[in-house]
Design a protein around this nucleic acid. Sequence first.
DNA 1: CGCTATAGGGTATACGTATACGCATAATAT
DNA 2: ATATTATGCGTATACGTATACCCTATAGCG
Lengths: 344, 344
Amino acid sequence: MGRQPSAKPTSFDIAYLAGVSQPTVSRALRGSKSVSAATRANIQRIAQELNYTVDKNASSLRSQRTHTLALLFFEDPNPDESMINPFFLSMLGSITRECARRGYDLLISFQQMHNDWHVTYQDSHRSDGIILLGYGDYQLYLTKLEHLVEMGTKFVRWGSVSEDGIGLTVGSDNVGAGEQAGAHLVEIGRRRIAFLGDASDHAPEFQDRYDGLCRAMRAAALEPDPALQRDAVSSEDSGYAAARSLIESGRPFDAVFAASDLIAIGAMRALAEAGLRLPQDVAIIGFDDIPAASLTTPTLTTVMQDMKGAGTLLVDALLARIDDRPVEQRILPARLIRRRSTAV
Amino acid sequence: MGRQPSAKPTSFDIAYLAGVSQPTVSRALRGSKSVSAATRANIQRIAQELNYTVDKNASSLRSQRTHTLALLFFEDPNPDESMINPFFLSMLGSITRECARRGYDLLISFQQMHNDWHVTYQDSHRSDGIILLGYGDYQLYLTKLEHLVEMGTKFVRWGSVSEDGIGLTVGSDNVGAGEQAGAHLVEIGRRRIAFLGDASDHAPEFQDRYDGLCRAMRAAALEPDPALQRDAVSSEDSGYAAARSLIESGRPFDAVFAASDLIAIGAMRALAEAGLRLPQDVAIIGFDDIPAASLTTPTLTTVMQDMKGAGTLLVDALLARIDDRPVEQRILPARLIRRRSTAV
DNA sequence: CGCTATAGGGTATACGTATACGCATAATAT
DNA sequence: ATATTATGCGTATACGTATACCCTATAGCG
């Protein structure tokens, strides 16, 4: 049988050249210890020479393992299609790197919550597991998660840890972070602190941040004023609108805690337009520490989440779940970054 | 033969239920016209009921088509691992969406230029083609590209169009954009315009932007001063350093054209620290229109590239190349966004 | 009314790898 | 010296789909 130098080499080609059978090639390259060191070395040398690569599809089909993870982002339907929440992007960076480090490929997809991603990705054997990231219609989300659990799909999600029992969750210590932010505002003498961000159970993470704020206020013998809370999703426009509504209500406030930096940036614009001085009249704290936070005027005090740790933990947890190893929920610490918007 | 309701259904299961053979199921679901409408409808109904999904691995293995594209980012080795160039991220958004629209999966990977990505992805049948994006050691890059061409790998890359013949390139009209920027600076009365960004053939896109600037200056009977050019890669720190070097040289200048917004933001910091007023003493223009550009003080005049068009074009071009359809290089227009940093 | 064309679908097989088993040879135990 | 176990590898086959090829029943056609 002549060699076909143009075609991509297969394990059979290597077997032929090494004078062994195809399964031995497979065993040698996968590191099975039932192949002698000499044979393995020879096979590896030939594979190298031929520039051989294992065919991912054949390998996955046979072993039922793809060595690929899927990352699904959910977004609120967004008019500007090329705009992505910078926080997610930061997460993306750490996840891709962690996958690479573990030798996993990463499949990525942006989704609207209402789509049938739970059908598309639950099998078809595209990936061994799914990482879920994003905000959206929370009730709908939970429904779909239950579906995933039923189907036995392996997944982890980023979110508020332990607010329910569905699936495996990794997230920041939102309550603690909210508490830090609140304590800082109290410490600089603020008494009437507004909160911008959904405080319904629609967005549990935002709710947690609000809870943390309230806890810090009560610890200082202050009672949070529900009228100073405004719903907002994570976008500049939404933050702007929420701050406008707050200003127009006429109710006095001397600080704002925004549930995300995007909200904070929008709010700063509204506050500045209303002639309020930052931070003298109103101090403001954001959340996420996106790159833009150090560029605003004044620079924005915010809460930095441990992105690198998040990527590592998400991937770790998912791989554990895939291998049916025990794995517990994990909470990551967050850290307050003090900048000019709270410098009195 | 009993049904195994727990196992994932295969085309054999459907065939059995529909009373046809497995190949007929395959044909029906793939839209072959040698299946009667009635049979097809029946098969589709059953597939739906069983929640059947085609096994991607088996399908790809047999058909030798993965319906997956790979997106490779190159970065300069970066100490901060979770930081990603925001421009790339914007591109990522439009590419993922375009892939989804075309029914392709997207595999994503960040790479250091020196890695063996050309070996890893050239086959193993992970994807049908590759999209290359990023900066780095340009000569090394070209070498690897030639390798890809030799191996018959299908790929497109984002970059400076037509500066060489290697592979298929899609990119912005960098020369035209540089010209717009230059013309604008001249129009507001600037005469001594500095350029921050690699002007070697190391980074052809930056070179093109510089060429455009020079062309605009010469059109206004001004001779560009080579001493006012400083090398910089696309990062804040690099821009800061370049601007410092410029200031310390003592050579007078009244405007800066930065090859990217990140460079511009770093430069603005250096200029402000040196007590120079923006834009009165020094006007400045960036490139990319990243979100942060509208948050700087003063807000940054910049050049906006057509990201959405870029994603579409890259994917289009790659799919054409994969199908061996003819496809020509394409250049995308860019647009100057005027903000306060050039408002006199 | 025989003859070819066509629709509709079955049979067999290939895609390239991984793994359950079996079978020698050699090493060790009894 | 025989029984026992481990080592190193070959044989056979499965993973689930797509496609080349073949076959049958009609319809069309003169």
